[in-house]
Simulated scan of single mutants.
Amino acid sequence: MSDSIASLIATGTKLYLDSVEPSLIDQNLAWGAVGATSNPAIISDIVKGGGLDSRIEALLGEGLDNEAIAWTLTDELVIDAQKKFASIHRETEGNAGWVSFELDPLLEDPTLDMSDSERTAKYIELGKKWSAGHTNRMIKVPASEAGLAALEELAAACVTLNVTLIFTDDQYTRARDAIWRGAQRCGKLDSFKSVYSIFISRIDIYTQEKLPGLSDEAQGTVGILNAKRIWKANQEFWSGKSTKLDQELIFASTGTKNPNDPPTKYVAALAGSDIQTNPPATNQAVVESGIEFSRTVDQMPSKAVQDEIDAALDIQDMHSTLMSEGVDKFVKPQRALLDLIAAKRKELSAT
């Protein structure tokens, strides 16, 4: 483990990896990572690498269609990662060692003729299906209208949840309250765990485009301020609840998108508590940074900067814009994965 990673973990940050690629899991485990997450783009990249061709060929031989193959590969890759983190899950009694499994992003495809209630019912069905029999798998559900409406029933069925695509305090609050209602119905509060993935860098890209008049002090800090405020609200809410395990924020979208920013910008700004799920390149940058990280998660920008941001930011526009973009970033990779498997089908059947 590098000194920089060690100092980050020493602040209280739980380091997770935004990938389930087996060699990256091994590398990040050695660095001190205690969990991971999956999404369609990650699975697509692994399939593109060609290392799963023999498995795809075997599944084709079983007569599976492209969608069934995509989900079988996803399930198997997540299971492989779960096995690698299982000892951490046992040692922490469920506070770490989790791997997140994302439900079908195509449920949010706006071109599909589905009502929100139909989408919600499908989230509940799939959440129960893909969580069954797993001890350290989190089910990832987006904080869309349909996803939020599914959370209470999933939590009531004792499904461990990672709510993703959260950009605003309102999304977080609705998700948290729904899961807490469901958890109390489930009744297994000693093993109850929930996490809430707050997206950060995408907010700063939004403000660069929509709020170019922000001062230099405020521009590029909106995502960080938003995450810190929600982190504080989360701390305050759960401090009064009788849960054995930590109910945590995941700081997500922590890879910098502005080329002028250091790659460790968000890691450094949010060190000290809860979970950072970082892209592989971001964790690599932390290892190589030589930085000695210190706790910053509870250090807020100046009141002047906060007031400037609050006066300029249209929360509803930010929410609708980023959710629309976020859904698109989920739907397109899933369709690309299905197209990739279709291409592999042709390629392998021709040999």
Score class of each variant (00 low, 15 high):
Lys14Trp: 00
Glu21Ile: 05
Leu29Ile: 15
Ala30Pro: 01
Pro40Val: 12
Glu57Tyr: 03
Gly63Thr: 03
Glu67Tyr: 15
Ala70Asp: 10
Ala70Gly: 09
Leu77Ser: 01
Lys84Ile: 08
Lys84Pro: 03
Lys84Thr: 05
Phe85Pro: 13
His89Gly: 13
Gly94His: 06
Gly97Asp: 01
Glu108Tyr: 10
Pro110Gly: 08
Asp113Arg: 14
Met114Thr: 13
Glu118Gln: 07
Thr120Gln: 10
Tyr123Val: 05
Lys128Arg: 15
Trp130Ala: 13
Ala132Glu: 15
Met138Trp: 02
Lys140Ile: 06
Glu145Met: 13
Ala146Asn: 12
Ala150Ile: 01
Ala150Val: 01
Val159Ser: 14
Leu161Ala: 04
Thr168Arg: 01
Tyr172Pro: 06
Ala175Gly: 12
Arg176Leu: 12
Trp180His: 14
Gln184Lys: 15
Arg185Lys: 15
Cys186Leu: 02
Cys186Asp: 04
Gly187Tyr: 10
Leu189Cys: 08
Lys193Val: 09
Lys193Gln: 04
Glu209Thr: 01
Leu211Lys: 03
Leu211Asn: 04
Leu214Thr: 06
Leu214Tyr: 11
Leu225Val: 04
Leu225Pro: 06
Lys228Glu: 05
Lys232Met: 07
Ala233Phe: 00
Gln235Val: 13
Trp238Lys: 02
Asp246Arg: 14
Asp246Thr: 14
Gln247Asp: 06
Leu249Ile: 15
Phe251Tyr: 15
Phe251Leu: 13
Lys257Ser: 10
Pro262Val: 14
Pro263Glu: 13
Ala269Ile: 01
Asn278Ile: 02
Asn278Gly: 02
Asn278Cys: 09
Thr282Cys: 04
Asn283Met: 11
Phe293Met: 11
Phe293Ala: 11
Thr296Trp: 06
Thr296Asp: 07
Thr296Ala: 14
Gln299Tyr: 00
Asp314Arg: 12
Gln316His: 11
Leu322Glu: 01
Asp328Asn: 06
Val331Cys: 01
Lys332Met: 07
Ile341Ala: 09
Ile341Met: 04
Ala343Ile: 07
Lys344Val: 02
Glu347Tyr: 08
Glu347Arg: 08
Leu348Pro: 13
